[in-house]
Amino acid sequence: MISVVALKKEFRVYRHHRGALGAVRNLVTREAHVVHAVDGVSFRIAPGELVGYLGPNGAGKSTTLKILTGILVPTDGEVRVAGRVPWLQRTEHVRGLGAVFGQRTGLWWDLPVIESLDLLRHIYRVPADRYRQNLRLFDALLDLGPFLDTPVRSLSLGQRMRADLAAALLHDPMLLFLDEPTIGLDVVAKERIRGFIRAINRERGTTVILTTHDLGDVEKLCERVIMIDHGRLVFDGALETLRQRFGEGRVLVVDFETPPGPLSLPGAETIRQEANRVWLRVAAHGSVAGIVPLLFRDQRVLDLSVQEPEIEEVVRRIYEGHLLADEAG
């Protein structure tokens, strides 16, 4: 579906002088420095995948997405989406994709939502019955009904995002790009949107690529994660692998009947103790099953629970660069 090879995008950032005279000066003196927004990224995405494209601010996420959607022309590298080069065959390319770019709406700001949807139907040449069918389905999943006749500018952020999602999917695209689809939304709205994305991916087989800062989105939606930083790929694989490889291991929380003495267990270390509750970190590749019997050996255990490493923690550590050196080496 998507193949990206050694993708590069450099931006020349010019020093800008202000005003009309400054504008002329800008043309004459071009003081530029080059920013490597995307610096040699390669990956493939198969049809039907739901991929999280992650990275800290300024990592190059949006730039990659804009190249894949045909908005930007890359400096170097190869991109094929459904066999096409996005920026060369723009119209054919975008006919088969849907995109929602976070804070910006693709709808007509001053007019009721339904008018935008109706115009998009004509732009994408969606047959009338298919249009009705889709509208009914999206209404069921996203509850568009209450605000279809409201001008876009009067919608809440959550309503606007729902309307934009519907608009992006009216023409049954094979590919959906979402840039921060849940940014700024409350928990209920986030859940609804995640449910919708999942449903579209599972039931229609739509390939979805989403960038997000909300790791809840990642945990609830993405089986696969591609992570970039400073324009370079730092991880590409299953979410579970990410957790295992970069997580500091699971934590075992044990409630003993009486406060235990210092524990010495192979493959686990005590990280915290409060009265008769103890937190033990199991080494990243260690086994909980191997440790538990040792706990029962000397004392009575009242309760036991295992905490998976928080993906948030994992990602934070990757962003902070602690683990990149290991990966690169």
């Binding site: 804009k66 959607t69 045909g70 908005i71 723009r90 119209t91 054919e92 975008v94 006919r95 995109a99 770019f101 910006r104 693709g106 732009i123 994408y124």
Partner: peptide, 13 residues
């Protein structure tokens, strides 16, 4: 404002 993005995302000249 980056509004031109929207133009490039639509399948019209």
């Amino acid at each position: 404002r980056g509004d031109f993005d929207r133009v490039l995302l639509r399948p019209l000249p």
